[in-house]
Design a protein around this nucleic acid. Structure first.
Length: 374
DNA sequence: AAATCGGGGCA
DNA sequence: TGCCCAGATTT
């Protein structure tokens, strides 16, 4: 069974044991049928719309969280045409709570492209699917294999972990060279032309289930794993070393100046941030790239007093550290302060900050300020 | 606090 | 074509 491969490219001969390469798919399929998941709401269908919807939701969220959202979406939008015809506000409302809203917008755009440019039918090839908004190579392969029986491989974070461990793939999978090698390996493992559509589905689902239920990041359950006897990580005790961690990189530090306009010792001015970029759409303190620029902004708000420094704080993002230099000006009387300003601003009592979406470090700063005023 | 994640967008 | 990002959760 499955001795032939769907891919044209293969790992260099001798890189991995031939018997493991050849037996991987049938063993995974057998394991999936016996121990994998079979009753998830998006299984047991070949409707590409349902499969697509589940895959997009699962890109970013755990199964248990997705289930109720998935049910509500299907009830409100039973078909891709229904989704495409809905006002985007309805879509965003149903998505609310799942986070990653740019992906909800891509979901909607994708539905419109499918409805308007593909006659309401999803493309059946990986390439066609991957051209759609929000669908990359891995998600395209998931949809193509589940809905159309395509012999295409997924390669998400779970699969990278499984391959790195079982085959002993060295190097950080986020690195292009390593990722390419994994794609080649993954494609060479896909069941061949003699596999049925059901085999293909079980294989793809098996990759997902193995990574999600046994070959987890923290404490893999190697005793139950069908590949324990061959797994490089297991046989060498390197489960924690594979896959290799992202190389440590010194994160750059950026610095920003924030203006605390304190009115009558109670309210501060917040400014709505632009929808894109850091803290998009949240309410934050007026900001500037330097001391002088901040003073200019204060003048525009009608505050001419000298700004007093507050304790600086740093906030760590994935890609950089942000050093925040707060400067405070205390004002009395409302009215005049808002005059010359066109940005979207609001005065908020320090006691009511929690009612606004405020970035965590700014909230911390304002909480500290409130504490010091009592 | 640190690590993680698939796709989009830009150099 | 490849690198880095935003935004959110998990460990």
């Amino acid at each position: 069974m499955y001795l032939s491969s769907a891919s044209t490219e293969k790992p260099a001969p001798g890189t991995y044991p031939d018997d493991l390469l050849a037996s991987f798919a049938p063993r995974l399929i057998a394991w999936q049928r016996e121990h994998g998941r079979h009753d998830l709401p998006w299984q047991n269908t070949r409707d590409p719309y349902r499969i697509w919807l589940s895959e997009i939701m699962l890109q970013q969220t755990q199964v248990s969280t997705v289930i109720p959202y998935y049910a509500r979406f299907l009830e409100r939008f039973p078909t891709v045409e229904a989704l495409a015809a809905a006002p985007i506000d309805d879509v965003m409302a149903l998505w609310a709570g799942l986070g990653y809203y740019s992906r909800a917008r891509n979901l909607y755009r994708c539905a419109q492209v499918v409805a308007q440019e593909h006659g309401g039918r999803f493309p059946s090839t990986v390439e066609g699917l991957a051209d759609l908004p929000g669908i990359g190579r891995s998600t395209a392969a998931a949809i193509a294999s589940f809905a159309f029986g395509a012999r295409a491989t997924i390669l998400d974070g779970n699969v990278k972990r499984v391959l790195a461990r079982v085959f002993g793939v060295e190097g950080f999978p986020g690195e292009k060279r390593v990722e390419n090698a994994m794609w080649t390996l993954a494609e060479s493992l896909v069941p061949g032309a003699d596999a049925s559509d059901a085999d293909v589905s079980a294989y793809t689902q098996g990759l997902m289930d193995l990574g999600a239920t046994l070959c987890t990041r923290g404490k893999p359950d190697c005793e139950r794993c069908p590949f324990a006897g061959d797994c490089v990580a297991k046989t060498t005790g390197r489960q924690r070393q594979l896959p290799a961690a992202r190389p440590k990189k010194a994160v750059p530090t950026r610095r920003t100046w924030m203006l605390v306009l304190l009115l009558d010792g109670d309210a501060v001015m917040l400014e709505k941030r632009p929808p894109m970029g850091i803290w998009g759409g949240l309410w934050s303190l007026p900001e500037a790239a330097g001391e002088a620029a901040l003073a200019d902004r204060a003048l525009m708000f009608g505050a001419s007093a000298k700004a007093a420094p507050l304790a600086s704080l740093t906030h760590t993002f994935t890609h950089f550290k942000l050093d925040i230099e707060p400067r405070m000006i205390e004002l009395e009387r409302k009215g005049a302060a808002l005059a010359a300003n066109e940005a979207e601003t609001v005065w908020v009592s320090l006691r009511e900050i929690d009612a606004y979406g405020v970035p965590a470090p700014v909230r911390k700063l304002l909480d500290g300020l409130r504490g010091s005023l009592i």
